Simulated scan of single mutants.
Amino acid sequence: MHLRQFGRTPWTVSEIGFGAWAIGGSWGDVEQDQAERALHAALDAGMTFIDTADVYGDGRSETIIAKVLKERRGDRPVVATKAGRRLDPHVAEGYNAENLTAFVERSLRNLQVDALDLVQLHCPPTEVYYRPEVFEALDRMVEAGKLRFYGVSVEKAEEALKAIEYPNVASVQIIYNIFRQRPAELFFREAKARDIAVIVRVPLASGLLTGKMKRDTQFAADDHRNFNRQGEAFDVGETFAGVPYEQGLGTVDALRALVPEGMTMAQFALKWILANDAVTVAIPGAKSPEQAEANAAASDMPPLDGTTLRAIGDLYEQDIKRFVHHRW
């Protein structure tokens, strides 16, 4: 497992981390024991970065992480969580010191720690990025010892660019994958210049880029790939990266010919992400030990060659760009 420097922090983290949304909820049923085994397998395979949120399973993801880490010895991984999506309604005014403090205190209890490694604003309304008092509230929590660093999780590249104008934003989490290439145009360059860590979420486009889905694939009622196809519950870009399902399947079929021998489609998609040195860590989810181990194995596989990278770029331009590029 290769490591990368996490921006301006003292941490070096595995370039492939563990995305803990799936073990919390909204991805179909995942039994507690299975979730714990998946996380253990990820850590055994060398992952040293875990990403979660207080709303994943209403705290279930955080409490599973706490239980697993309590059972393990050795160095503790970096655990990043998120705050803000518990607001109802989810409006900019809710991102105030009182609410953020309450969210942080709850995550401290769930994760059973005295200080959170990294707290990220959880895809807040765009207006929040234009409210300095929000970031000042986070500064005060750092000063109080409640958190070590903070960052943002964004929907749009423009939000990311605005967020990194605040001097103490340490990281940005953003969707970047074969189907969502816009962050590499400008944001990545600015992030590198400011030494900002970049956390890549939705790296497999909600599973589309695993190559395992078909036109008749069925998703559980409580799986966001069923209930958020049109953005009914949250931003549609979080589900299949915002690409129409049928279109995505067609492009995946075209991508198959580019996958090197000995590499799965999912590993191929992760290697494409890691080819950009602005990326700090990609956080695919895993609902089983086998998935976690396969994700981790991608790190040590050979990089994709230039011809393959150009062919992926061409497919994006031809098939996908018109659906997503202008939106996020």
Rank of each mutant, 00 (worst) to 15 (best):
residue 290 E to Q: 15
residue 72 R to W: 07
residue 231 G to E: 05
residue 169 V to F: 03
residue 308 T to K: 13
residue 68 V to W: 04
residue 86 R to Y: 12
residue 283 I to P: 02
residue 98 E to Q: 12
residue 74 G to S: 10
residue 26 S to Y: 15
residue 49 F to L: 06
residue 280 T to N: 02
residue 303 P to E: 11
residue 270 L to Q: 07
residue 69 L to M: 11
residue 295 N to M: 13
residue 191 A to N: 13
residue 122 H to T: 01
residue 59 G to V: 00
residue 52 T to S: 11
residue 311 A to L: 03
residue 37 R to V: 09
residue 145 G to T: 08
residue 65 I to R: 09
residue 212 K to W: 08
residue 206 S to G: 11
residue 301 M to I: 06
residue 189 R to Y: 14
residue 205 A to M: 05
residue 278 A to Q: 01
residue 287 K to P: 06
residue 255 L to V: 12
residue 260 P to M: 10
residue 124 P to V: 00
residue 127 E to I: 01
residue 270 L to Y: 08
residue 321 K to D: 05
residue 201 R to N: 10
residue 325 H to Y: 12
residue 218 Q to V: 15
residue 77 P to G: 05
residue 267 Q to M: 09
residue 209 L to A: 01
residue 79 V to R: 06
residue 280 T to Y: 02
residue 298 A to C: 03
residue 95 Y to W: 03
residue 272 W to C: 01
residue 39 L to R: 05
residue 322 R to D: 10
residue 121 L to Y: 01
residue 325 H to W: 13
residue 146 K to A: 13
residue 51 D to M: 03
residue 309 L to F: 08
residue 52 T to Y: 04
residue 306 G to Y: 07
residue 258 L to F: 01
residue 68 V to F: 02
residue 39 L to E: 09
residue 112 Q to A: 13
residue 293 E to D: 10
residue 247 Q to V: 15
residue 229 R to G: 07
residue 248 G to V: 01
residue 225 R to K: 03
residue 67 K to L: 11
residue 179 F to Q: 04
residue 40 H to A: 11
residue 158 E to W: 11
residue 91 V to S: 09
residue 74 G to H: 06
residue 222 D to A: 13
residue 194 R to L: 09
residue 218 Q to D: 14
residue 4 R to L: 07
residue 294 A to T: 13
residue 93 E to M: 07
residue 264 T to S: 15
residue 244 P to M: 06
residue 249 L to D: 04
residue 66 A to I: 06
residue 8 R to D: 10
residue 88 D to Q: 15
residue 7 G to D: 07
residue 42 A to D: 04
residue 170 A to C: 11
residue 285 G to A: 02
residue 24 G to C: 07
residue 135 F to V: 04
residue 264 T to Q: 09
residue 297 A to P: 02
residue 127 E to H: 05
residue 62 E to S: 05
residue 124 P to Y: 01
residue 213 M to N: 15
residue 88 D to A: 12
residue 290 E to K: 14
residue 239 T to D: 04
residue 60 R to E: 08
residue 275 A to D: 09
residue 43 L to E: 00
residue 135 F to C: 00
residue 273 I to G: 00
residue 264 T to I: 12
